[in-house]
């Protein structure tokens, strides 16, 4: 039994990881993680609201993101 798990780990592949994620994660968990990343990315990169956009002006130039 222990040998089987060791062999499985030795031949660990990206497909195994996808299966593991399917088996161990619930839909809402995945949704929350994806939403967090999307919200962060959207706020930092694409929000054009003048207040937020101007506040992040120096950050965008420091990170090499240019809008104009």
């Amino acid at each position: 039994m222990q040998d089987d798990t060791d062999t499985a780990r030795a031949t660990d592949s990206v497909y195994d990881r996808i299966d593991r994620a399917r088996a161990s994660l619930t839909g809402p968990q995945i949704a929350i993680a994806v939403a967090l990343v999307a919200a962060l990315g959207f706020t930092l990169l694409f929000v054009q609201d003048p207040m937020l956009h101007d506040s992040l002006h120096n950050f965008r130039h420091s990170a090499g993101i240019t809008c104009h």
């Binding site: 930092l44 207040m51 101007d54 506040s55 120096n58 950050f59 420091s62």
Partner: peptide, 25 residues
């Protein structure tokens, strides 16, 4: 700009922190 220089300074530092969180996650 519609916000003060101080706001930009502070918000941009915060943006830098969140940039790292985004890449890390």
């Amino acid at each position: 700009p519609v916000v003060s220089e101080l706001t930009t300074t502070v918000a941009s530092v915060g943006g830098g922190v969140l940039w790292g969180v985004l890449f890390g996650v």
